[in-house]
């Protein structure tokens, strides 16, 4: 439908939020139109190609995000996206993103962290973050397959001694041995890739207590 372009202020803060190659375009409604029945239309552009492309599922929508993961799934290329707001017969000019380079800009989600405790040990098992999948039944690709030099920073905090130390590992298991028994340790892990600065998402801090020292437990009985 034709509309009077420029009759509305543009959407603001238009940006790609990318985590593990799931690339979602987000924006804020035009400042003065909070609450109005505004709809939006999105287009995207593959850098170096010839024309802007539409995504039918993101035409005349009233939400303020659009999942462009499929359209931007070739992470070796770069992209632009743009949004315009429409309300009644008026519409805004396009608001455009900066150039988006998934390979360099996607955030690496945290690994899954499983802790099992022993008397004086904690076993840490990591599950690598997975790349976004088009369909749930698609085969899994781990982010490590895209970034072979992906590493993990494991931070360990001894709540009794109030000491923190960290270790950088590349494999997926780490056993902390000869810990103090009956002591609460907190563990946090972040995946990182040596390269241009990139947002990092650490895992949630998990705290577990080592078991009671069996030797002293027997003496007590």
């Amino acid at each position: 439908a034709t509309c009077v372009s420029g009759g509305l202020p543009q959407p603001t803060n238009i940006t790609f939020i990318s985590i593990n190659m799931q690339n979602i375009l987000r924006w804020n409604p035009p400042a003065e139109l909070q609450g109005a029945e505004v709809t939006y239309t999105v287009q995207y552009f593959i850098y170096g190609q010839k024309k802007w492309l539409s995504k039918p599922e993101c035409r005349n929508i009233n939400r303020t995000y659009c999942d462009l993961s499929v359209e931007t799934s070739d992470y070796e290329h770069q992209y632009y996206a743009k949004v315009k707001a429409m309300w009644e017969t008026n519409c805004s000019r396009w608001a455009e993103t900066t150039r988006f380079y998934p390979f360099l800009e996607t955030q690496i989600g945290p690994p899954e962290v499983a802790l099992t405790t022993g008397e004086k040990s904690i076993s840490i098992t990591l599950t690598a973050p997975e790349k976004w999948k088009r369909n749930p039944e698609d085969s899994t690709v781990f982010m490590q397959q895209i970034y072979p030099n992906l590493k993990y920073n494991v931070s360990v905090y001894n709540t009794k001694s109030k000491r923190m130390w960290s270790q950088s590992i590349t494999n997926h298991t780490l056993v902390l041995s000869w810990l103090e028994p009956s002591t609460l340790y907190c563990v946090q892990v972040e995946a990182f890739i040596p390269g241009p600065p990139r947002l990092i998402q650490p895992s949630h801090k998990q705290c577990v207590s080592t078991l009671e020292d069996q030797a002293s437990a027997l003496k007590v009985r």
């Binding site: 552009f45 850098y47 170096g48 190609q49 024309k51 070796e76 632009y80 900066t98 150039r99």
Partner: peptide
């Protein structure tokens, strides 16, 4: 990149694959 208005040309296209 903001000053580059020729979005339809990639000089280093050969490196993209």
């Amino acid at each position: 990149q903001a000053k580059d208005t020729f979005q339809n040309v990639t000089v280093l296209s050969i490196l993209e694959s």
